[in-house]
Every structure is written in C-alpha cells, then in structure tokens.
Amino acid sequence: MENLDMINSSAIKYYFSLQLKRFSRKAADYEIPTIVLVVLILAAFILASVFLFYKSPMAKWIYPFAGAYATQYFSDKQVQSIFTTKQSFILNLVSKLLIATPFMGFLIYKMEWLSLVILFLLTIIMAFVPQGRNVNFKVPTPFRSRPFEFIIGFRRSYIFVLLAYFLIFKGIQVGNENLAFASFSFLFLLSMSYFFIPENEYFVWINSKTPHQFLMVKIKTAIINVSVLTILPSLVLLIFYTTLWYVVPIIYAVGYLYLITIILGKYAAFPNEISIPQSIIILISMICPPIMIFTLPSFYKRAIQKLNPILAC
C-alpha cells in the first residue's frame, strides 16, 4: 500500500513536470524564452485586472466568477481517464488552486476579502466536479439550429450561466445593481471563451462559402446566440433599473464588439490557437477600443488570408 502511494505521488509529480515541459515547448514554438512568456502572461493578466477594477465598479463581483471559470476552463480534461479517482481529485484540486492563485493574489492586493473568500470556495467546489467524465447526459441548449460553438460552450459552462442568472436576480433582490450588471457582463465573457479553441480545419472546409461570407455567418450567429443567452436578464434589468437604462445597451455594444474581435482574432490565427502575442494584441484592443480601428481590419485581413486556402480551393 505504501509502495502504491509512492507510485501515486511520483505520477502526480511527473504530471506537473510534464505540464511545465509542455509550457516550455509552447514558448519555444513562439521562439521566446519560457521566463519571458511567463512575464508576458503575468503582465497581460495584471493589465487586464487593473483595467477591470479601474473601469468597472462591478469588478469585485465579476472577478471571482471569472477566476472560477478560468479554473474550470483551463483544467486538463484527460486527468480522469489517466489517473485513479484519488489521484485525479488531488490533481484537479492542485491545478485549480494554481490557476486561481493569480486571481487570489490580485484580490489580496485589492483587499477585496469577500471576493477572495467567494473565489476560494468556488475553486474548492469546482475541484469536486469531475473533469471529462464520459457521461451521456445531454444538456439541452437553445442553440440547436445553429451549431456549434455555443452548443459546445454552453454545455461546458452551463453551471456558470445558471450561476450568472441566479446572481442577476439575487443582485436585483438585494438592491445591488453592481452585482446584477456584473453577472450580466459575465455572460458576454463566457460567450467569448467559446471561441478560444479552433475547430479542426475539416469543419471549416465543409462550408461552401467564401472566407468573407464564412466570417460574416460566424459573427451573425454569435451575435444572435449571445442575444438569446442574454435577452431575458437584459429585459429584467431594464424593468428593475429604469434610471440606469443606458447600462444594458452599453454592455451589449461592448460585448458585441469584443465578440467580433475574438472571432476575427481566432480565424486570424487559424488553424492554430490564438497565440500569446495575438492574445496580448486582442487584450490591448479591448482595453483601448480606439485601437480596434487598426486591429479589427488587420485581424479581418489576416483571417481572410488564413481561410482562403481552405475555403477557396
């Protein structure tokens, strides 16, 4: 038994050393030293966090949920199938705490103790959610007629969608408009995350569309689907906060713009994942929207170039 535990502990250590190797190899792909990539990611993270807290009074509410979602999003879904139940729980917990650490660190810096406790509790709860379990329970979605990003994304994140809905209504109930609007904004952030991972090029190839038509359909579908996801809470917010009627259209306008940026950014990198340098450009564009005058046409042009050999052959 003791011997088995030793093997388990070695396996866990080996797993994390492999993750480190994978990260270093990714850095090597971008031809930058690992330490520089770490600094870049941290700098981008701090920049985004400072911006969020500077711009939005709702930040302290958005932040713990964004952190909890990140722990879920970046978790390794293969762990469950490789390791024993006990090992996968430990791996899951440690991985999630590691991913949550920068978020927790920033909350400590901001002395947002309540948000910190919420994030910590959510992270622990998330560790109990098995990763990549082979279940055939089908989550119904309102996006059936327009596959596929929102169907997949919604099925992976429906707990967070329900949580956001709950917090919108809770915010209204306790008279905390910041919580309500923050949770509403979070729905847009969730939708954006559905476009982070590129599909196999075969699923682009099957389309009989020009690259321009393809991108337009993607954008149109995303706008329709995010509207479906947000229409009910937006009406409720408009009814309960009539004096703040302008907030909802502003969130919609910014949310749509960010979504378009992510879609164009995704296909500008296609068939690869959005690279770290590209992520930083996207992030800077979001922080300073006037830059989008340059970045959006550039992403669009690059996306057309990347899609052209696949769609126009």
Binding site: K138, R144, P147, I151, I152, Y202
Partner: peptide, 11 residues
C-alpha cells in the same frame, strides 16, 4: 473527426 458535446443530429 467529431467535436465533443455535439449530438448526432447537431452534427
């Protein structure tokens, strides 16, 4: 090739 969490109908 199949994407995860997509039903046969949706495919």
């Amino acid at each position: 090739i199949f994407m995860s969490k997509i039903t046969g109908w949706e495919y």
